[in-house]
Design a protein around this nucleic acid. Structure first.
Length: 506
RNA sequence: GGUCCGUUCGUAUAGGGGUUAGUACGCAAGAUUUUCAUUCUUGUAACACGGGUUCGAUUCCCGUACGGACUACCA
């Protein structure tokens, strides 16, 4: 009997959620949906020293913006709560003690200073200090101390931690859904702290206990966790939970577009693309980071782009709605290697979604942006602009900038375009054009084009000779949509005004 | 340093014992257009290296190189 699929996204509220985190959440979400399972959000805030106010709320808002609906967890409720580990604090000690009693863990009284000294001593001999089977008998812990000494230390309130007793020289062959078999020898691993002297569990304890208690069926997380997989598996074994141990899948990392290393939050501001879904202000430094949302990305495009970073469905299909992703996603098709993030491709994805959006929807967004520049326009005009400009834009802000000339007459003319298209005969032709335009009624795109085309054709003048300088007069440069769409939107009065101004200028 | 993971055009990837190694982004050229763009066409460019196994390897195995992660009382 297959058990119900339950996966969790378990971030630490230590700052904004970056794209790597969003992708981990996304893959968990897709996997849950694909299998009719539950997607949980658990907040792993066991390290009070790293807690950042606002981070948890940011995470919830980000998932929401991305359209990843949480079935259960912080902010959503559920039968397995609380879902914030700080609120589950009391629970973990029992489990740590259980491991001590079964001989799989022990008390350690070494102070941070003592451990630091050990590390330094080892380093001097070009060695790495490891708290393991070789060293633990010489250190200050309940394995070395007598039962009485340990009890005495505990009673007197000496700070202690609980460490996992890593078995010696055991060959572990573990399964990863993405990587296949992964082998470890336990002798190379160390006795990780499970329970800290501040009374809080470490990630390892809290994570395993909660995954067990919350009946998680699949752990889908970043590759940075692969090295602690043996510890986690051994813990399940020590607890006697092997039968319900989740399956593991370690996702490849997202790397910087250029240079070495994984994508970090610094890259965003220095390389000119966002690394966060939403704008984030670091409460400690007041530093502000742009988000994909603020840069004009549609959440669907953002999600689509992230999904294709390290995954594909085996066909050439690249544009997927969230629904389609839910249906197509499988862990088997997740790439093993880390992927470099490509900001250009991200823009392309947004372009694809922009073009597909109804003009009425884009018009609303465009209206808002134009308003910020002090420009107001009726809905009909905005829609017309969107339909005319979106093909050449990646973002609504591109449409906004490209269409500004419709509302503001050009203040200067592009030198290189003028040089190329404003010829000796241009003034005479444009004067003639001016006279003819004055007569055009109605001033619609179709009719104006008909009249002007007839004139150009019959006079054997050549379209380029008229249209190019005409465009410069109206737009200020050699760009923009179909010229007669522009004249219609400008209206006769404004069109003539701009024509006259250009004639006066050159 | 140690452990683990990885390596197909610049990037994201498909593929897989015999292929003209496919696609997308980017870039370039051409066509179209009154401009820019769009669109269309074409081009550009890859199996990290060295050994095996094999009739044959880019594909399987082993090394090397390179990249990455981890190596905290952080997650």
């Amino acid at each position: 009997m297959e058990r119900k699929v339950r996966v969790r996204f378990a971030p630490s509220p230590t700052g904004a959620l970056h794209v790597g985190g969003v992708r981990t959440a996304l893959f968990n979400y897709l996997f849950a949906r694909r299998h009719g399972g539950d997607f949980l959000l658990r907040i792993e805030d066991t390290d009070q020293t790293r807690y950042v106010p606002g981070a948890e709320e940011y995470i919830i808002r980000s998932l929401k913006w991305c359209g990843l609906q949480v079935d259960e967890g912080v902010g959503s409720g559920g039968a397995f709560g609380p879902y914030r580990q700080s609120e589950r604090k009391a629970l973990y000690k029992t489990y740590a003690l259980q491991l001590v009693e079964s001989g799989n863990a022990y008390y350690a009284f070494d102070t941070p200073e003592e451990l630091e000294a050990c590390r330094n001593a080892c380093e001097e001999q070009k060695d790495t200090f490891t708290y393991n089977a070789l060293s633990r008998s010489k250190l200050n812990n309940s394995l070395r101390l007598s039962r009485e000494e340990t009890a005495q230390a505990l009673r007197s309130g000496v700070p202690y931690v609980i460490r996992f007793k890593m078995p010696e020289n055991e060959e572990l062959v573990l399964q990863d859904l993405i990587r296949g078999e992964v082998r470890f020898n336990t002798s190379l691993l160390d006795d990780k702290v499970l329970f800290k002297s501040d009374g809080m569990p470490t990630y390892h304890l809290a994570n395993v206990v909660d995954d067990y208690l919350m009946q998680i069926s699949h752990v889908i997380r970043g590759e940075e966790w692969l090295p602690s997989l043996p510890l986690h598996v051994l813990m399940y074994r020590s607890f006697g939970w092997e039968k319900v141990m989740p399956a593991f899948a370690h996702l490849p990392l997202i790397l910087k577009p250029v240079g070495n290393g994984k994508l970090s939050k610094r890259d965003g501001n220095s390389m000119g693309f966002p690394v966060f879904p939403l704008q984030w202000t670091d409460p400690a430094t007041n530093e502000v980071w742009h988000g994909y949302r603020e840069d004009g990305y549609f959440p669907e495009a953002f999600i689509n782009m992230l999904a294709l970073l390290g995954w594909n469905d085996g066909t050439d299909k690249e544009i997927f709605s969230l629904q389609e992703l839910c249906e197509a996603f499988t862990l088997e098709r997740v790439h093993k290697a880390g992927s470099r993030f490509d900001p250009e491709k991200a823009k392309w994805f947004n372009h694809k979604y922009l073009v597909e959006k109804p003009d009425s929807e884009l018009a609303l967004l465009l209206g808002r942006q134009l308003l910020e520049k002090g420009i107001q326009a009726p809905a009909g005009v905005l829609e017309r602009i969107c339909s005319l400009f979106k093909e050449r834009a990646n973002f609504v802000s591109d449409i906004c900038n490209d269409s500004l000339f419709l509302f503001r007459a050009p203040e200067h003319y592009e030198d290189k375009d003028v040089k190329k298209h404003w010829k000796e005969g241009s003034p005479a032709l444009l004067k003639e054009l001016y006279a003819r335009l004055e007569q055009v009624t109605p001033f619609t795109a179709a009719h104006t084009e008909e009249v002007i085309s007839a004139w150009i054709t019959s006079g054997e003048i050549g379209f380029g000779k008229v249209m190019n300088p005409f465009r410069i007069a109206l737009v200020g440069a050699s760009k923009g949509p179909h010229l007669f769409d522009i004249t219609e939107m400008l209206g006769k009065e404004e069109t003539l005004k701009r024509l006259k101004k250009a004639l006066d200028t050159f």
